[in-house]
Design a protein around this nucleic acid. Structure first.
Lengths: 202, 202, 202, 202
DNA sequence: GATGAATGAGCCTTCATTCAT
DNA sequence: TATGAATGAAGGCTCATTCAT
């Protein structure tokens, strides 16, 4: 019988992930040493290794958490009945999470993108965090097409990708220039959305 | 009188940078060891150290080369008399360099972005490679405004940033999905450009 | 009054020793981790540490058990009235225990020999397990000399050592070649015994 | 063009193996740390790792050296025309190398035997060092049988194994009792040899 | 007694960098 | 200049051991 409840274990795990997140955001995956994580978490090497079998697993856990969060963010907005409103809601949620505040999240995002180039597990996490939302966006647009709101020659996949590219691109912009205004970004997104969907603005 | 002609030295330097570029694109800045670079270049440790005093300097040289190239690419197109045509030319050049081919360049780009978060020298290189082109784009748009082609309420800086965000975002998209069509990207760019500049699509 | 009966404690102790024996035979003293022993025994770290204060103690307990068993085996046969029959009985018992079956025992034996080189406690256990039987063999041979059965120039100590060397040497042979026939070993032993004792083979 | 001659590299390699041998004989394979080897050799970690890719490789190199030496020792004597003289010569060489002096060699031998139980590469080295000599002994005895010197019912393989078992067993005896007389061992060997080969002593 | 999460010293190994040749 | 053997600080990880529950 476990003396320590499973909740405690889960809490520990979360603590460690959070400490790692802080370190990774500060110094990047590869420049962060596990010593840094031990210090940040206040735990010993052995303890951390009871929860994660390697640095790689810890990186993956952080990346995974981020992509789950991103998927949730991008999905949440999509429930609006109006496709356009839905996409705006998505952008709003994304901007709120990544562009208004959340420098740490931006940094982790960029780290994850870079790491995904050579870390299959992280690439998989990336794709899972990206494919889901994209497919939902595609469906939303297709629904709009079916209902005659968007022209037939709109490519839903390309439109979805463009949306995502734009939002990701702004993550970079804000990383390099913290002054960049989140509102202005959202406004810009709204300005471009009609063209993206082939409808007239307003 | 130098024993070795300057041209010879410059050629060696270029060789080393190219070898490093290959390695960095393959494995990232931090996962690449200098031994990898020695092997790729066919040169010895001592020789490479005669040209670059540290790994950091080598990373910087590669990042620098990339940003010079990017600045050149983005600037080249801007000489068209028509601002819209100029911006399209910029996008075309960018797409040609980063999105049609150039997987290595995309990878180096992403590495550089990530590294810039914690490497001041690389951040500086980044900014130099980015500010220049952006300022030129801003000027182009301002010229368009002056000439009455674009509405007064267009924010040139924001428009320039959005362009860049979009192009950078597509670098990511293509890194994760090599099938993504460069032509479609360009078409999408052209579709969005009028909205970006506040003119009606013609 | 003890809460837990002594028999229970002894049984637990024996369980742990047996689990350790299995692990040590599988992986050697030094390559076996206590975590392996915990897993094999199904007990927790704390529990095992209630019975043994260190890994060293556990190793010693296993080595001790083996040497007690070896001493018993080698002594048991010596009760025959006829010295030659007694020595043959010893060899038979040894072969039965170590060479017919008992791969685990062979492995533990070899581990113990190696460990004895640098572990005083285990060396002591070794000697206790070896001196006793050897002295008994020596006495047996001396008795035979007194009774005129063996020539006077026989060195009982050397004869005893040779017997043991031979049997130990066959442990190695069987470890490296499991096909080696226990019967053939015994036959060989019987063939050599007369020369060893300076009597003509009958 | 190599500035440093290959001889120098081979010498370095030999130095490292020798230092490792000393450490392994002193503390065993598993209790020896590479730090010990660095200290003993006077070389840095990096340098040693230029010659051996892992501790395992170093262990193997030491084991290999020992088995090559053993094979040489046991083979050297076999050239006598008389099989019995040949086998005596083998024993003499073995005793001279392992039993008169060579405590280090004995310790390494025992370490190697133990390690071979769970290290395939070392087991292979063991077998190579053992099969060769045994086969030669077997051939020698078979030649003796053919020439009518030994009876037909002698099993050459068993005789060879017994010889080796005896010599190995004496290695153990001498490890535990440094006083044991090498001459007495050789005398005992000569005493037993006739029985081993089925010829009458004389 | 029994549990198992936590500890932390220390191990093996890597790799940026140096320097005698 | 070019070589590459040598350096050694530091990283990831293990595991014997402890102790609050």
């Amino acid at each position: 019988m476990p003396r320590v409840k499973p909740e405690r274990k889960a809490a520990r795990r979360a603590e460690i992930i959070e400490a790692a997140r802080v370190c990774f955001a500060r110094n990047g995956f590869r420049m962060t040493t596990l010593q840094d994580v031990f210090a940040e978490s206040g735990l010993s090497a052995g303890c951390v290794y009871n929860y994660f079998q390697s640095k790689n697993e810890l990186m993956l856990a952080v990346a995974d958490a981020r992509h789950k969060a991103e998927a949730r963010i991008m999905t949440e907005g999509l429930e609006a009945s109006n496709p356009v409103a839905g996409l705006v809601a998505v952008a709003e949620a994304f901007v709120a999470e990544y562009l208004s505040v959340g420098e740490q999240s931006r940094r982790i995002a960029l780290e994850t993108w870079a790491e995904s180039l050579r870390n299959p597990a992280i690439l998989r996490a990336m794709h899972q965090g990206l494919h889901g939302p994209r497919k939902q966006i595609v469906q939303l647009i297709e629904r709009g097409k079916t209902m005659g709101w968007f022209p037939a020659d709109i490519n839903p996949d390309m439109a979805a990708r463009t949306m995502i590219a734009l939002l990701h691109g702004f993550i970079l912009q804000r990383l390099w220039d913290p002054k960049l205004n989140a509102r202005a970004i959202l406004a810009m997104f709204k300005t471009l959305l009609p063209s993206l969907l082939g409808v007239s603005a307003n």
